[in-house]
Design a protein around this nucleic acid. Structure first.
Lengths: 347, 347
DNA sequence: CCGAAGAGAACAATCCTTTGCAGTTGGCCA
DNA sequence: TGGCCAACTGCAAAGGATTGTTCTCTTCGG
C-alpha cells in the first residue's frame, strides 16, 4: 500500500516494524524469515509475503541496532603511522580487501608515530563501536597497547612489534632483511656500502640495521659512519644525505646503497641521477618494496600474506573460534627481487 | 566496592546501570551528570559521588547504544579509487585529520575505480552505521551516487565530479590545470610537448587534457599523437611509454613533458634518467602534486583545503546547520611550484 | 470425544543510552 | 496548617533487531 509505486526506491526509515505492520505479523517473525532461523516454522505463504514486502521497500537491517543486540559491529580499525608511505598504503589496501571479504569495514587512523595521538585515537576506539584493531604502529614507548589489553579489545600487530611483547604479530624478521641485503651486496664484491633508514627507535628498523651489522661483522667489515644515514624520513632528506655521500672524495664514496625503506628510495635515486651516475655500473642500489613490481632491485615484503593472516587471525579471535594452526606470531619470508640495479663491483 | 583495588583499570562492561547501581541512583541520573544536562539539578554530593565512581571504573559510554538513540554514529566513510596513489593517500590523510577534530572516525574503502565494487561498498554503507560519505571516486557511469540520493544519505564529492551533476563538490578546475600547464611550457618556448595521463573517462582527467588542447589550439599548435600517452596507470607503463618517445628520431622527440598525474611522474623520470638525459637542459618535466614539497616543478593542488572544506560542509549538512557562505561547489586555485625542472627551450 | 503433539506465530526481554514527564521531599509563605 | 514552589530524582518509553518462551490453533491417534 505504501511505496507501492516506488519500486526499487529504498526508504532509509523502513524497519522491521514497518514490514511487520504491512504484512500484519510480528517483527520477530520478519527477522526470523530474513535470517532463515531454523527454529521457526513459517507458512510458505506468509514467508513469501514477507519477502515480497522486504524486496519492495528495499529494507536493510539497521546495523547499529544489530550491533547493540549482537555485541559486535563488524567494524575493525587499523592504526597506521603514515598512510602516505607506500608501504603502509599497500598494507592497508590488502587489509581492507581481506576484511571486506569477511563483511568488515575498516576505520583507518593516522598516528604520525606520535604516542600521544595514538593513545587518543585508541581511547575513542575503545567506546564499543569497533570489534578489533590492527596496529602497524607498535612502539615500545606507546602505551596504547596496554590500554587495549586492559579494555580487553582484540588486536594484532602487523609489521612492527614490541621488543618484550608476546602480542599476536604478523610481519617479517627484520634482522633477516638486514642480513640478506648485506649478504647480497657483499657477495657482489662491494666494499663501501651506504645505509639509509628511518627512526631507529622502531624495533623493526633497528633490527634491520642490526642484521646488516652482523653480516658486515662476520665479513670483518663495519659500517662507515659517513655512509650511514638513519633517522631519515622524507625523499628530500634522503636526497640530501645521498648528495653528501656522493660529494666525498672518490675512495670514500659508496659503491652500493642499501635502502630498506620505501619512502627514501626515490630520494637516493634523485641524487644519483643528479650526479649523472649510471646504475648499476657506477653504483648499485638495493631497495625495499611492498609492491610486487618494484622498479629497483628490492627486498620484497609479502604484504598481502601479512595482511591476510593478520585479519584472519583477528576475526577468528573475535568469533572465539579455535586457533589451531595459527601461531600468534609469524615471520614471513622475504626475498630479493632482481631488477638489475645491483651488479658486481670489480675488485 | 567492586573494582576498588583496580584503580585505572577499565572494564569494558561497565554501563550506566553499573555505575547507577553502585551509587544507588537511576541510570538516567548518571547520564545527566555526564552530559551536564542543564534541565536537571543534582545535589553536589551525589554528583561528586557519581563522578568518582565513573572515574574509578573507567566508564565510557557505549557508542553503539548512543548511536541508536541519537540516530548518528559519528562515523564517516570515504571512497577512494586507490589509496596507494599518493594523491589519494594525502587526501585521505587530510580528511581524516579534519574529521577527527570534529569527533568523527573515517571508514576508508578502496573501489579500484570499479563501478560494481563501488556499488557493493555503498550498499553495505547504507545500513545506517555511517552518517555521511566523502567520495573521491565520482564517475558518470557509477550508479552509487544515485543510490545515496535515494537512501537520503549525505555525501560530498572531492576532486572528481560528475558531468551533469549538481552534487556538492570541492576540487580544482581540471580545465585550468591543463591550461596553466600548457601555457607554462609554451611560454618557455617548447614546441614538442609530451602529455601523460590516466583514464580519460574520468571527467577530471579528460578536462585536463581538454584544457591543454585549448591552449595549444590558441597557439596554433596541436598535440602530436605520438607524444600523447594516456590511459596509463602505473609507473612502469609510464616508463615504457616515455622510453618509446625517447626512441623517436631527434626532431620528433619531446622537449618537455607534462604529467598531471602523480602515479606516472616517477615512471617518466625513470625513463629520462635511463636515457642519460639531464633535466631541464635536455628535457623539461612538469608534474602534479598533492604534497606541499614536490621534487619536480609541479602544478599543486591544495589538497588540505579541499579536504577541510569538504568535511566541514558534510558535517554541517549532517547537523542540518545553515550553510550560508558555503556554496556547494568550490573550485580551488592551482599554482605552479617551481623546482627548476622546466626551463626555456632555445629556439 | 478427549488429550496431546506439533505447526505457526506472537510476546517479551535484552542490548545501552537518552530524555520527557512525573513523582517525592523539604521549606517557606500566607 | 494548607498550599505551593523549588529542588532533586526516578520512571518509562524510545531507538531497531534478536531470540527464548509462550500461546493458540489444527489435527490426529486412541
Amino acid at each position: 500500500m505504501t511505496n507501492g509505486n516506488l519500486t526499487g526506491v529504498a526508504n532509509a526509515n523502513v524497519s522491521l516494524a514497518t514490514i511487520a505492520k504491512e504484512v500484519g505479523v510480528d517483527p520477530s517473525l520478519v527477522s526470523r524469515v530474513l535470517r532463515s532461523d531454523p527454529s521457526a516454522r513459517i507458512s510458505p505463504k506468509k514467508r513469501a509475503h514477507i519477502l515480497e514486502v522486504v524486496e519492495r521497500t528495499g529494507y536493510r537491517p539497521n546495523r547499529v541496532a544489530q550491533s547493540l543486540r549482537m555485541r559486535q559491529t563488524h567494524i575493525l580499525a587499523m592504526l597506521t603511522p603514515d598512510i602516505t608511505n607506500p608501504f603502509h598504503s599497500w598494507l592497508f589496501r590488502a587489509v581492507e580487501a581481506r576484511a571486506n571479504r569477511s563483511g568488515y569495514d575498516v576505520i583507518l587512523c593516522n598516528t604520525d608515530d606520535d604516542a600521544e595521538r595514538s593513545l587518543k585515537v585508541v581511547t575513542t576506539l575503545c567506546e564499543g563501536h569497533i570489534d578489533g584493531l590492527l596496529l602497524a604502529t607498535a612502539r615500545d614507548d606507546d602505551p596504547s597497547i596496554e590500554m587495549l589489553q586492559r579494555r580487553n579489545i582484540p588486536y594484532v600487530l602487523m609489521n612492527r612489534r614490541r621488543k618484550n611483547g608476546d602480542d599476536p604479530w604478523f610481519g617479517t624478521d627484520s634482522g633477516r632483511v638486514g642480513r640478506i641485503g648485506g649478504e647480497h651486496l657483499l657477495s657482489l664484491g662491494h666494499k663501501r656500502i651506504a645505509y639509509f633508514d628511518g627512526d631507529l627507535t622502531v624495533e623493526q628498523i633497528e633490527g634491520r640495521k642490526r642484521g646488516l651489522l652482523e653480516v658486515l661483522d662476520a665479513a670483518d667489515r663495519s659500517l662507515d659512519p659517513e655512509l650511514a644515514a638513519t633517522e631519515l624520513s622524507t625523499r628530500l632528506e634522503a636526497r640530501n644525505a645521498m648528495q653528501t655521500m656522493l660529494a666525498l672524495r672518490w675512495e670514500k664514496r659508496p659503491t652500493a646503497v642499501f635502502v630498506p625503506r620505501t619512502t627514501l628510495v626515490d630520494g637516493v635515486l634523485d641524487a644519483v641521477h643528479a650526479a649523472g651516475l649510471t646504475i648499476p655500473d657506477d653504483i648499485s642500489i638495493l631497495g625495499f618494496s611492498a609492491v610486487p613490481d618494484p622498479v629497483i632491485t628490492s627486498i620484497r615484503v609479502p604484504i598481502n600474506e601479512i595482511a591476510e593472516r593478520a585479519v584472519e587471525y583477528l576475526i577468528k579471535t573475535l568469533k572465539s573460534e579455535p586457533l589451531p594452526d595459527d601461531p600468534p606470531q609469524v615471520a614471513f619470508e622475504t626475498t630479493i627481487i632482481d631488477r638489475t640495479t645491483t651488479a658486481a663491483w670489480p675488485s
